[in-house]
């Protein structure tokens, strides 16, 4: 089974995000990390590939930079990666992303594509469904459990009230939530091997897709601030202050 996992390199969320002054695009440093969200997809892909004698390819769009994030995913155990890096793609929205990822994925063939539910930096949450539509295959979203058997994928899909069990024939796209599996940490051996694994870099021209991005950010303004109120240290009586406030708000 050929599993492809969509992985995004993002600026480390531990340091505050910067926006470019003119375009309001996110500043992307050379060193980007693997989006935490996608570690779940990689882990799921590795487990399914192992159970079904498969391989795991990674596909990623965006500035390759030092490829630290891609190497992190390879170090977990993925076999190879394709990265589409092109200045023309700066400021891409989810639709452009889906078209580019779709072209890269279909040129290599696939049985199952795994994406995250939403990226940490963009969080549009619509890229996986768009990707499935571009590829012409079903999309199973908000997946909290997956199994593959006999050319069929069965998942638990999170709903407002609980979950649904959903089935589809392969090939398909699934979007997994965090928590679906416990992502493994790369071993030292994995990290060493990752340096030698094949990483192919492509441009939009190589894929023969047209991208035009119609969405622009026109301004960034400060939101009306909600400021913190009183802060007290608990010295054994703080619960009484909570009671007092609940009384004042007529909750009790």
């Amino acid at each position: 089974m050929q599993v492809t996992v969509c992985v995004k390199q993002i600026p480390d969320p531990a340091s505050p995000y910067q926006l470019e002054p003119d375009t309001h695009w996110l500043v992307r440093p050379d060193e980007q990390i693997l989006d935490e969200t996608d570690r779940y997809g990689v882990e799921m892909g590795l487990q399914l590939a192992q159970e079904n004698e498969g391989t795991v390819s990674l596909v990623s769009m965006g500035p390759a930079g030092s490829m630290q994030g891609i190497r992190q995913a390879l170090a977990m155990g993925a076999d190879e990666a394709t990265i589409i890096d092109d200045t023309e793609l700066k400021g891409s929205d989810a639709l452009a992303t889906a078209r580019v990822l779709g072209a890269a994925i279909s040129s290599k063939g696939f049985d199952l594509v795994i994406a995250g539910t939403e990226s940490t930096d963009g969080y549009s949450g619509v890229a996986p469904q768009m990707l499935a539509e571009v590829l012409g295959v079903p999309c199973l979203t908000y997946v909290t459990e997956v199994s593959v058997d006999d050319g069929k994928v069965t998942v638990h899909r999170q709903t407002d009230a609980g979950y649904d069990v959903v089935e589809a024939d392969l090939p398909a796209v699934i979007a997994v939530t965090a928590g679906v599996v416990e992502p493994r940490y790369p071993t030292f051996k994995g990290i060493m091997q990752a340096k030698k694994k094949p990483v192919e870099t492509k441009t939009v021209g190589d894929l023969g897709v047209e991208v035009d991005v119609d969405q622009i950010v026109t301004s960034i303004t400060d939101a009306p601030e909600r400021s913190g109120g009183e802060k007290i240290e608990d010295e054994g009586e703080a619960h009484l202050r909570i009671i007092e406030l609940l009384e004042r708000k007529k909750v009790i």
Binding site: A94, A98, V126, Q129, M130, C139, D214
Partner: peptide, 24 residues
């Protein structure tokens, strides 16, 4: 709405209509 099925439908529709989605 920014809700599960809404997001799925909007994503598929965007590809069919060839237009972006303004999320969130």
């Amino acid at each position: 709405g920014q809700a599960y099925t809404d997001r799925d439908v909007a994503g598929g529709l965007a590809v069919r209509l060839g237009t972006g989605v303004l999320s969130n």
